[in-house]
């Protein structure tokens, strides 16, 4: 079936099974590799993107459920080809080790700062809770979110 998706400001006609989770469409049909496959179960957050302005697990979001909502991936945060405020803060803090989780982390942090521009440490930790990191980059990620909030 053909579904129209608006991703990072552009419309795309996607012809695929309606049960396909958004993650596979973004990665395979649109070549956007920022969102990652981590569990396919909504447990780890590596696939986090924004749908309708909110951070969501794209691995458990069938495209049949999206409707007209706009989708933003980590690639869509770039402003004139340059990292946006949150991305730049992650770069400045070198907040990535293997980095597999990090696009999801950036998207989760972006959502927090959109709704709560000056979060407390406890609010940041609670908000970032759905996203897992195995390398132990958490401390650097927390510094990056604070830096972005202060920027």
């Amino acid at each position: 079936m053909t579904i129209t998706l608006k991703v990072n400001g552009k419309s795309h006609e996607i012809d695929t099974d309606a049960s396909t989770p958004l993650l596979y469409v973004l990665r395979n049909d649109l070549g956007l590799h920022g969102p990652k496959f981590g569990c396919g179960l909504g447990q780890c957050g590596a696939c986090t993107v924004q749908v309708g302005g909110r951070a969501m697990f794209s691995c458990i979001m069938p495209i049949a459920a999206i409707g007209g909502r706009e989708i933003t991936t980590v690639e869509g945060l770039l402003e004139n080809g340059k990292p946006n405020k949150v991305q730049q803060a992650f770069i400045d803090e070198q907040a990535a080790q293997c980095g597999y989780c990090i696009a999801g982390m950036v998207m989760r942090a972006q959502s927090l700062l959109q709704t709560n521009p000056k979060p407390t440490e406890a609010e940041i930790r609670q908000h970032m809770r759905p996203n897992l990191c195995r390398c132990g980059t958490h401390a650097a990620i927390l510094r990056a979110v604070k830096r972005a909030a202060a920027a």
Partner: peptide, 10 residues
Amino acid sequence: PEVAAIYAGA
């Protein structure tokens, strides 16, 4: 078909 797809995907 929509809800069946949602169940299968989610």
